[in-house]
């Protein structure tokens, strides 16, 4: 094979906690291999060196919450051949999208001594609400193996193997005994996209929906089951309103409770 020029990788941050970018640094064993295959051109969390675009692959973390973000994400898009949004903030607006259901004015008055210095939007939204995105990698935070899979797929010109079916499929493959059936623990797994590696069901907890709605999620039927298990309307609404509160299926479900 002819030696290929190392593709340039950039990692961007918008409104977020940095957890997803950290996942890249967390790829300890594979990090060396990554740096052999790509040129890390822009990744402030890892290095101060910042090269100019265009970039071959941009990983974008975080949601759009300020007028400045809107301008910045357009620049990133313009300078990137492939743009992959990573994590619940960038694919759905993140936990900060709770503002979409409340008044930002009230929030900022409660939190800041001088809210007048803030220049913020009234909503927190996904990257794909503003620019074209080539792939959305879900999770709060993203899963390291899935990140490597997506990078490997783009570097090798193949389709990433990232399923969109429910977390239950992952539970069953991993041999986890269903928490909801065997214990009555409320679980969002049947409506949540697989990918976390059964972190919660594997440690005796119900799924919190970190990977966002599964394809065709039937949230209404799940909500009815949660009620049957003893959750009241307010609790059901709050279950759907966390890291992926603004993902359409979860947003609609939470709005029909409490």
């Amino acid at each position: 094979m002819a030696a290929r020029a190392k593709p340039k990788l950039a990692v961007w941050k918008f409104s977020s906690c940095d957890g997803c970018q950290l996942t890249l640094l967390d790829c300890e064993d594979e990090l060396l291999a990554i740096t052999e295959e790509v040129r890390i051109s822009y990744f402030l969390e890892a290095t101060r060196k910042a090269e100019k675009g265009p970039y071959d692959v941009s990983l974008v973390e975080g949601s759009i919450t300020t007028p400045h973000d809107i301008k910045a994400i357009r620049d990133v898009r313009k300078n990137s051949k492939v743009l992959v949004s990573i994590g619940a903030c960038s694919t759905a607006g993140g936990i900060q999208a709770l503002r979409n259901f409340a008044s930002v004015k009230d929030y900022s008055r409660a939190v800041y001594a001088h809210p007048e210095y803030l220049d913020t939007l009234t909503t927190s939204t996904a990257i794909s609400d503003h620019v074209r995105v080539d792939f959305e990698l879900r999770g709060c935070p993203i899963n390291k193996h899935q990140l490597l899979e997506v990078l490997g797929a783009f570097l090798n010109g193949r389709k990433p193997n990232i399923p969109q079916y429910s977390e239950c499929v992952e539970c069953k493959r991993n041999g986890i005994v269903c928490r909801m059936v065997a214990k009555g623990t409320p679980c969002l797994g049947p409506a949540t996209q697989a990918g976390c590696g059964t972190l919660c069901p594997g440690t005796d907890r119900g799924c919190y929906g970190c990977f966002g709605p599964a394809e065709g999620a039937n949230t209404a039927a799940l909500a009815a089951r949660l009620a049957h298990l003893g959750k009241d309307d307010g609790e059901i609404g709050r279950l759907f309103r966390t890291f992926n509160a603004n993902a359409e299926a979860f947003r609609k479900e939470s709005q029909s409770h409490g």
């Binding site: 295959e37 990078l151 797929a153 193949r158 429910s166 239950c168 499929v169 069953k172 999620a217």
Partner: peptide, 29 residues
């Protein structure tokens, strides 16, 4: 309306046999 389409039934069914095939590569190819 009631079914979650979660797939649990097929996973636990002792006769369901369907599989999918995935090709994976390392970063280098």
């Amino acid at each position: 309306k009631r079914c979650l389409s979660c797939g649990n039934c097929t996973m636990v069914c002792p006769t369901c046999f369907c599989t999918t095939v995935e090709d994976v590569t390392d970063l280098k190819g």
